[in-house]
Design a protein around this nucleic acid. Structure first.
Lengths: 364, 364
DNA sequence: TTGTACGCGTTATCAG
DNA sequence: CTGATAACGCGTACAA
């Protein structure tokens, strides 16, 4: 254990040491570009070029500079760089939440993908709230991000005005409706939900209900509802208000929603949920109601996060290409920052993954 | 739907508009401090003071400046500010992963707490790997963060040297062993695990096994093992190698670990897990083995994330004060950045929350 | 209380 | 291929 802290010193001593360093040594605390330049006996311009366009510098000179950089332990000063180049090598992402895993995977991929390109990801959360999202976007813009990743396409026009006025490139993820004038990297939520609903119907379910996320300013949630509704209507069925309940993205609120649903005069045989968290919550609620899944009621999820196979029964759900969306979004945005036009965006296919929570309706 | 995109324009047109803006209008794209100064007929110094030390400016002057700021839509340039003040109002956090919810809640709180103080949180992930952690710390330092939040205390000395050489304040969270020379905000992992093990023993379990996280450079994991071992030894029991399996932080690897454990010649009656994700995985593995929880085997978790009550049976686990750790860490670090000495750090208590996965050993 | 003037560390534009 | 030098936007002594 002791070895871990071989370099340990009380904090006050560290401060002291640092202040020594600041004034003693070879002249100052953090080496700057011109320190490196002196050390390598070249101009600051050359050092800068070594860092940013290495191939425009003669091999030998570059070697000398690199040696100096290494010896001095030089790191470029972020502020200076941002000021002079008017770029931060930072892109921002505003996601609804980190509390569940829905966006976590995608963000992780995004971060990896961007860090390869030597750019940093700044993550902010909106808690599924438009106003908070706007203020986070403002904050990110204020920090001079070079680009932005946002979730979904439906937000007040003034937010898009803010974005456009600033002239930062941005891409919208987790959505691709075909109607959006901005570059999207995602999938068609409506179509995916439609497919799931048809699958449910193909298993003879006729009494189907839905637990949806809040649909205000949330195109993913509302399009999923639309998809389900369309499938039902094609079968001559409806999704009446009492069969569609909006719930928060927590286990408990979905659990309560499920309890309400099965208390209805004619109990649904299947509950389609807007996402896996809600489906897991529904499972919980149904258990509390003494109902078995899928024997008494079937449940489906959406997103295919790890939770989907952690619960019992494991969720039949819609698989979403988290990883591929992440890399595609990173790639597109990076190109846009480089000046490329966004083009058409990218659509991915989703697919239904069958596990245990959905079964053919029992014919008792 | 159409209303959403009232401000929609094709991307190429946006670029065009922006370039108009750049050259037309009142002289330039983004207003600067001196634009504001001109507009308010004061000096740049006064504008700067209005922003940073408002009470040193006469009421009336300030009003004029604020009006100008509003009218021009001025936002301070991040780079310029960082360069001149040598502060970024940014703190960095390196956490093991965002893939599960273990750290998500704490980070979210941290972010909220810091954004109140008008400082931005920069999140990076290490994937439970020391080298990656070091490189992330480097990257964060390179971006001039004013402070750092790190998880756990056990890391190679050179990392602490790097930190100290840079002179950035940092605080360690999720840990508080009492032995660490750096400021910690957390709880005693060893003690918490010890308490859980004693609880298990009090329910007559004598054949207990453990699924632990990887303990290399992970003080949380290794201290939890120590705690369990200590409790067992006090009862004259041991935790032999075959009863202690290290698994990754995924459902599947913990599931396999559990399957192995119950295949042992004498089957454990209780499996203590290093965290909730692993406990959920264990549940899965036991189900595959055809064993009932808790009737055949009891399982306990650690951390009390939402997953703990999403699974069936709900996990008996150790509750950790995610939120309070987040605010305390934010507060302490903020004070340290302001120049305060770190003091003693902060310890929180944990407590066992009893749910369904742990039962008295059945006396068949 | 306010203004002047300089410096922060880098990049970029020119000549050479 | 390299070097001088002028921005870049802001904070802050210092002077008024």
């Amino acid at each position: 254990m002791d070895v871990l802290f071989r370099s340990a010193r009380p904090y006050s001593m560290i401060c002291f040491i640092n202040s020594i360093r600041r004034f003693g040594m070879h002249g100052g605390l953090k080496p700057t570009l011109s320190d490196v330049a002196k050390h390598a006996r070249v101009s600051t311009a050359t050092v800068s070029r070594c860092l940013n366009m290495p191939d425009q510098v003669r091999e030998e000179t570059r070697a000398r500079v690199e040696a100096a950089v290494a010896e001095l332990g030089y790191t470029p000063h972020f502020g200076g760089r941002a000021l002079a180049s008017n770029r931060t090598n930072t892109i921002g992402a505003v996601i609804p939440t980190m509390d569940n895993a829905i966006f976590a995977r995608g963000v992780q991929v995004l971060e990896e993908e961007l860090s390869v390109r030597d750019i940093t990801l700044l993550i902010a959360t909106s808690d599924y709230d438009v106003d908070r999202e706007k203020s986070k976007i403002r904050a990110l813009l204020g920090r001079g991000v070079d680009g932005l990743i946002l979730v979904g396409e439906s937000r007040p026009p003034e937010v898009y005005d803010l974005l456009n006025a600033n002239g930062v490139p941005f891409v919208l993820v987790w959505t691709y409706s075909g109607r959006c004038p901005y570059p999207c990297v995602g999938f068609d939520n409506r179509r995916a939900a439609y497919a799931m609903a048809r699958h449910v119907l193909s298993l003879e379910h006729r009494e189907v209900a839905m637990i949806s996320g809040l649909t205000v300013w949330n195109d993913r949630a509302s399009q999923r509802v639309q998809g389900v509704r369309k499938a039902l209507e094609e079968h001559g069925l409806a999704l009446p208000p009492e069969r569609l309940v909006q719930a928060g993205y927590t286990l408990e609120s979905a659990a309560e929603a499920a309890e309400d649903l099965v208390d209805l005069p004619t109990r649904p045989t299947a509950i389609i949920c807007g996402n896996d968290v809600q489906a897991a919550g529904a499972l919980k609620g149904l258990r509390r109601s003494g109902l078995r899944v899928p024997e008494d009621v079937s449940v489906t999820g959406f997103d295919d996060i790890e939770l989907a196979h952690a619960v019992t029964p494991a969720l039949t759900t819609v698989h979403v290409p988290h990883r591929r969306m992440g890399v595609a979004a990173a790639d597109l945005l990076h190109r846009m920052i480089g000046g490329a036009l966004p083009g058409e965006g990218i659509v991915f296919e989703t697919k239904i993954v069958e596990r245990e929570s959905l079964a053919r309706v029992s014919d008792e």
